[in-house]
Design a protein around this nucleic acid. Structure first.
Lengths: 344, 344
DNA sequence: TCTTAGCACTCGAAACATAAGAGTGCTAAC
DNA sequence: GTTAGCACTCTTATGTTTCGAGTGCTAAGA
């Protein structure tokens, strides 16, 4: 069956109406609201064709039509009018990034907040891969008073992590200083995920000459290896799905919320997404159990042209795709610029 | 009306049965399952009395009885048999705290995880008041490569916070060292909430002699003032409420989940609780909008006899109170001990 | 050949009716 | 004071009816 222009118009009308109202839409409604210049009967014929093509579905015989995943897909690929944020909204996004934020974690947290606020869907984000990031600075700080020290590590992605260590009696601040120097000399510029395979025994040899440092150094290296080396995950507005009329079923809600609660699950969303540009996954296209009634839109953000991570949102398949896309485009843009500055 | 022994037995039976099954319980059930040696008719009379006393309620004429908030209250205060964890469970709790955890934040996160796991309710915790904690260490670290520095602050509660700073060109590591020394000398032992009222201008004067340090120092002091100074809030297992049959209503679920989502709301829960020992708030006793169908049990944890913060849980008024209490007691105990060691 | 008016048909949602069952309160007997 | 008996109440489940929205088909018209 061919997809002539009128079919396209009908399909677009059905989807737009359904996205707007959430109710199955009938031929009469289309004829009335969108003046295509033909009668309901004609539209009925077209809709029957579109159903046969797999683009529309009928919940039951006497209901209107509802878009199928494929229908949304066709709409998104071919029919959807391009949308832009208003200048005011673009300005608003820019302002939100103009706050003083000097750490990527803060920036990404703010990003998810912004996305969920502007779309009313659940916003998610994936931080840069810490494993590939290199160590930029390692310091062991003495802490007065207690028998503790602080291991601080800064990676090239600007993520700061710390670990508290117990130091054995007799270890002096000078010892710690020496340790810091050696660690920096040996580890600076090395990728976190390479640490595991590196010959840390060298360092161990060099530092553990003194008896009382043996335990400390072992502990320290162990802590270094335990630094989070995957991509960190951010989320915001997950409770927004409670406002979607299609999720009035408790079991489904539980399923989705539990899903969004797990870092690993969110990583899986991003993993199965091509690493570049904007991606839209509609319903079953998500090969992931539990969100097959949802759509996921993601976009990557970059620094100096290199992809650093991704941000995205999750909502019902009945999503305002054009809105979602324009928000994500704008936000990813502003985010990239912000990070660009951050790393300069 | 007097509360004789038989009434107590009937009330206890009704509540225990209701907690177990979640269904309104009738006189027949009580007579069958709990052998009080009297007939359903007698029990009916007692239940009518208990209803008149405000301890039981009837959803409708032909349903069984359901405990009222006051009924639970009487049960908790006077009837509930004391419960203890099994030795295995106590051992399990101890083992969970035997992991290497050197930071209070980690300990509290693990604590909420443990509580929600053991009770299937939502676990919440309140960290120590950072405002009253004193600064134990302030350091400004140079970071190689970039034009950034790292402000690290450690408070007496063992909380570590960091802030990234931009440093103007020309500032040397020695400058930063000097700044660290001065800050430490001036601020060590001061409470965070006193910083605001302190004459920071002294420090400003002392440090900002050099032109190029002016901005940095101003920035630095500002960051110090921005250190989180309230109590941090922890939560875990909030989605457990989706499993409670009494919360099958989406609106109620939304209300509670949104509530639990806000740090401020959680603080309010703890604030309205007397600062010592174990507290149980049943239903409307929570003077807080949105959780008036819930019960909250909290308990404080201490270090060297001083109250540091609180942990607790939130579930339906139909809660296994004795279980909740014994879990919280045991956990709070182990938590206190763990922190005790941490601070030694 | 395409379009459309007309109409019978389908199916779900809502309204209503009925029956079953659980539990109560009351009364009178023990 | 206790309890058996019984009428009564109210919810839940189930069935029935009605209503309306929307369809598919057919035949007439352009």
């Amino acid at each position: 069956m061919r997809m002539d222009e009128r079919k396209q118009k009908v399909l677009a009308a059905v989807i737009q109406d359904y996205i707007l109202t959430g109710e199955p839409v009938g031929s009469r409604t289309i004829a009335r609201r969108y003046n295509l210049g033909v009668s309901p009967a004609t539209i009925r014929n077209e809709m029957a064709d579109l159903e046969e093509m797999g683009l529309l579905e009928q919940p039951h015989t006497s209901a209107g039509r509802v878009p199928s995943d494929q229908g949304y897909r066709y709409y998104v690929d071919c029919l959807m009018p391009p949308a832009h944020l208003t200048p005011e909204e673009e300005e608003y996004v820019r302002r939100r990034y103009n706050q003083k934020m000097l750490e990527i974690e803060q920036v990404l947290a703010e990003t998810t907040r912004l996305i969920s606020e502007m779309t009313s869907y659940a916003a998610i984000a994936l931080g840069p891969d810490q494993g590939r990031a290199s160590l930029e600075e390692v310091q062991v700080l003495p802490i007065q008073i207690t028998n503790k020290a602080l291991l601080v590590a800064v990676t090239s992605t600007g993520v700061v992590e710390h670990r508290v260590l117990t130091i054995p009696a007799g270890v002096t601040p000078e010892d710690l200083n020496r340790i810091s120097r050696v660690l920096n000399a040996r580890l600076q510029g090395r990728a976190l995920e390479d640490l595991r395979q590196m010959v840390l025994s060298d360092i161990y040899q060099e530092l553990a000459q003194h008896r009382n440092l043996v335990n400390l150094v072992r502990d320290l290296l162990q802590q270094l290896l335990s630094l989070e080396s995957g991509e960190r995950v951010y989320r915001n507005g997950t409770l927004n799905i409670l406002n979607q009329p299609e999720f009035k079923d408790l079991d489904r809600v539980r399923e989705i919320l539990s899903f969004l609660d797990q870092d690993e699950a969110l990583r899986r969303i991003f993993m199965t997404t091509p690493s570049t540009g904007l991606t839209i996954r509609i319903g079953q296209e998500n090969k992931i159990e539990g969100i097959d009634k949802c759509s996921v839109v993601t976009i990557s953000y970059t620094v100096e042209g290199k992809i650093m991570g991704k941000v995205g949102l999750l909502g019902p398949t009945r999503m305002q795709y054009s809105r979602a896309i324009s928000v994500l485009r704008c936000v990813a843009d502003a985010l990239s610029q912000t990070l660009e500055q951050l790393y300069r």
